[in-house]
Write a protein that binds this DNA or RNA. Structure first.
Lengths: 259, 259
DNA sequence: TCTTGCCATTTGCATATGCAATTAGATAGC
DNA sequence: GCTATCTAATTGCATATGCAAATGGCAAGA
C-alpha cells in the first residue's frame, strides 16, 4: 500500500478498536449493539465509514455471515447504509418522523410551497426565573439560553417558538446568535440527542401570543412541547404554538405499525 | 399417523397451498411478503399456526435457512411469534400505538384509574346527508351507520365520538346496537383493517358539543380524526373531540425512530 | 486529455451442515 | 390416576462455501 493507504489503514484500526462485545446473548446481536452504541454515542458520526465485513470478521473472530447479519439488521433499522463495493457508512438520522415531523420548521414551510422567514424576538441567557423553570421543568441552578422566535410562511405568522437550551450540555449555543439559522435547525447540526419526549394539546391563545400569531385571544391553538436529552443530560425544551385553525398533523399506519 | 394426525396434516396442507411466491426480488423476501400478505388479508387470523420451517422449505423448494430468515424478520416486525418446539403462530396486533393509542377508549380511561361508562346519544343507518358526507368524505350512495357516543370518566365527559361505519364493508354492524360495547371496541373485534390515517388539530367547541362536554362554547378542543380501510375498502371514520384543557398526548422517540 | 474496459473490493444471497435449546406429548413407573 | 422421564419436533445460532452484482479506481488506448 502507498502512504495514503497506510493512513487509511490506521484509521480503520482506530475504528475497529472501538468495537467491543459484551458477551451477552447471540454474537450477531452483540455485534449489532456494539456498532449501534458507537453510532448513538456519536463516536461514529453520520458519514463515517464502518469497517468492511472482512475487517470486523477478523477483529471479532466471528464468521462473515454473522457479521453480515448484524449489519443487515442495522441497515434495516436505518442506522447505516450499505452499498456494494463502496462499503458501509453511518446514516444521517431521518429528518422526518411521520406524525411529529416538526424538527425543521423551514423545511416544513417550504414543503408547503411557501416562503420561509423568521425573527428572534427575544433572547436571554442565565439562570431561569421561577416562572420559566416551572414552565419547562428546569432546575433553578442550571444556566440556559431562553429564546422566543416567530416563524413566518409567506409573511404570515406560522408558529411561535419558545425554547430553552441547556448551556451545560450545548456550550456552543452561548456564542451563537441564531441570526442565520433558527435555533431548532442549529441544534440539529450542533448537538446530539438520544431521546425525546413530546406532548400535544389544545390551548387557548394568551393575549400576547394571539397578537404575535395574528389571531384572536382565546382562539384554539395546538401546543407541541418537546424535550430532548442526550445520554440523560437535558439538551433543549421547546414549546411550539400553532394557530389551530391553520394546522393539522397527519399520519398513516397499519395494524402492526407504521406503513 | 392416527386420524387426528391426518386432520392436522390436511390443515397444514391447506395452509401451505396459500403461500405463493411472486418471483420478484430475493427469495427470503418473497417468502416474507407472501406470509405477511396472508396475515394482513386475514387468511391466517391471529392464533393460526404457521407451517414449520421444514414444511415451507419443502413446499417452496428453498433451504431452511432462507425460510428461517423470512420468518425471523416477520417475528421482528411483530407479525408472528415463534417458540421452539411449539412452532410459529400469527400474533395479535398490538393494542397500543405510542402516540395515538386511542383505539380503545375504555382502556384509556381505566389506565388513568377512572371509572368508565358511555352512552350512545344517537344512531341512524342509511345513506348520508350532504353535510355528513362532506364531514367524513363519504360518497352519497354508500350506506353507513352514523353514531354519536359520549364517553365518561368518573361520570365526567371525557370525549365525544362521532363515527360512521361502512355497512358494505362491515355488514354485521347493522345488527349490533352497541349497548354493551362501544363502537370502537366492537369494531376491533369484528372487523379487519389494513391501513389507517389520522389527523390531529385544535378547534373551538361548537355550542352543542360544548354543552355535552360540559365546557364553554368556543373553548379549545383537540380533534382527532381517524379513517381506516381494509384492502382499499373504507371501514370506518371517526372524529374524537377531547376537551383541550383536560388532555395531553405524549410520546417518546429517539433519533432513528421509536424507542 | 479523455474514454473505454478491466480488475479488485465489498456487499447480497442462497445453500448445506451441525449442534444447542426448548418443550409438547408420549411413555414408563409408581 | 399421577408423576417423573424420555423422545422427538421445532426453532435458534454459527460456520463454511460459493457465486452474483455493483462499482471505484486503475490502466491501456485513442
Amino acid at each position: 500500500m502507498n502512504q495514503a493507504g497506510m493512513t487509511q489503514e490506521a484509521m480503520t484500526q482506530t475504528r475497529l478498536d472501538a468495537v467491543r462485545l459484551d458477551g451477552a446473548g447471540p454474537i450477531y446481536d452483540q455485534i449489532r449493539r456494539a456498532v449501534r452504541d458507537l453510532i448513538l454515542a456519536g463516536t461514529w458520526p453520520p458519514g463515517t465509514s464502518v469497517p468492511p465485513e472482512h475487517a470486523l470478521m477478523e477483529q471479532l473472530g466471528a464468521s462473515r455471515m454473522t457479521v453480515h447479519r448484524a449489519l443487515v439488521q442495522l441497515a434495516r433499522e436505518g442506522l447505516i447504509t450499505r452499498r456494494r463495493r463502496s462499503g458501509t457508512i453511518v446514516a444521517s438520522p431521518p429528518a422526518s418522523h411521520a406524525m411529529l415531523d416538526i424538527l425543521s420548521i423551514p423545511e416544513e414551510v417550504e414543503r408547503l410551497g411557501q416562503r420561509y422567514d423568521y425573527e428572534v424576538l427575544s433572547r436571554e441567557d442565565g439562570r431561569p426565573s421561577a416562572e420559566l423553570a416551572l414552565r419547562f421543568g428546569l432546575k433553578r441552578g442550571e444556566k440556559v439560553a431562553h429564546l422566543v422566535t416567530l416563524h413566518r410562511a409567506d409573511g404570515k405568522a406560522h408558529v411561535l417558538e419558545e425554547r430553552v437550551i441547556h448551556l451545560a450540555t450545548v456550550p456552543a449555543a452561548a456564542a451563537e446568535d441564531f441570526s442565520k439559522t433558527p435555533p431548532g435547525d442549529w441544534l440539529l447540526g450542533n448537538s446530539l440527542w438520544s431521546q425525546a419526549e413530546h406532548a400535544i394539546s389544545a390551548v387557548p391563545a394568551e393575549p400576547d401570543d394571539a397578537q404575535l400569531l395574528d389571531i384572536g385571544a382565546g382562539e384554539p391553538c395546538l401546543l407541541i412541547e418537546r424535550r430532548t436529552w442526550n445520554q440523560g443530560s437535558p439538551v433543549t425544551a421547546v414549546r411550539l404554538l400553532y394557530p389551530g385553525s391553520r394546522h393539522r398533523f397527519v399520519g398513516r399506519f397499519g395494524p402492526y405499525g407504521q406503513v
